[in-house]
Amino acid sequence: MTSIDEGVARLRRYIDDLDLTGQERLPPEPILAERMGFTRSRLRTILKRMEADGTIWRHVGKGTFIGPPPPSGGEQLPATVAAKDLFEARLLIEPMLAARAAQEADEGDIAIMRACIDGMRNSASFQQWKRLDERLHRAVAGASHNSLLLTVHDTMRLSSRQAIDVRVRAVYGEPAEPRGVVEAEHIALVEAIAARDAEAAAQAMQAHILSVRSSLLPSS
Results as ranks from 00 to 15, higher is better:
Arg58Glu: 08
Ile46Asp: 00
Thr64Met: 02
Ala201Phe: 01
Gly54Ser: 03
Val168Trp: 11
Arg161Thr: 11
Pro218Asn: 07
Arg196Asp: 03
Ala101Lys: 04
Ala204Ile: 03
Thr80Trp: 12
Arg25Trp: 01
Arg135Cys: 00
Gln23Ala: 08
Leu91Tyr: 00
Arg40Gln: 14
Pro70Phe: 02
Gln127His: 14
Arg10Asn: 06
Ile164Glu: 09
Leu132Val: 01
Ala195Asp: 15
Glu6Lys: 15
His145Phe: 00
Glu134Ala: 12
Leu26Pro: 05
Met113His: 05
Arg196Met: 03
Met50Trp: 09
Gln162Ile: 09
Ser41Thr: 15
Gly63Val: 06
Thr2Gly: 15
Gly54Asn: 04
Glu134Pro: 01
Ala9Asn: 11
Glu174Asn: 04
Leu158Ile: 10
Thr45Gln: 14
Met156Leu: 15
Tyr14Thr: 05
Leu217Gly: 01
Ser215Met: 15
Pro71Lys: 08
Cys116Lys: 00
Ser211Phe: 02
Trp57Leu: 05
Ala202Cys: 06
Asp85Val: 08
Phe126Ile: 05
Leu150Asn: 08
Val190Arg: 04
Asp165Gly: 01
Arg58Thr: 09
Ala143Phe: 02
Pro78Cys: 09
Ile209Tyr: 01
Met205Gln: 13
Met1Ile: 04
Ala115Arg: 13
Gln76Asn: 09
Val81Gln: 09
Arg90Lys: 15
Glu94Gln: 15
Val166Thr: 13
Ala139Asp: 04
Ala141Ile: 00
Arg169Lys: 14
Pro95Tyr: 02
Met120Ala: 03
Met120Glu: 07
Val81Glu: 10
Tyr14Asn: 03
Ile66His: 03
Leu11Ala: 01
Gly22Trp: 11
Ala207Asp: 12
Leu32Asn: 10
Met96Asp: 13
Trp129Gly: 02
Asp53Gly: 02
His153Met: 10
Gly180Leu: 03
Arg196Val: 00
Thr2Cys: 08
Gly22Cys: 09
Ala188Thr: 11
Arg90Thr: 02
Thr45Phe: 01
Arg100Ile: 01
Glu134Ser: 12
Gly67Gln: 06
Asn146Ala: 10
His145Asn: 02
Thr21Gln: 12
Thr55Gly: 04
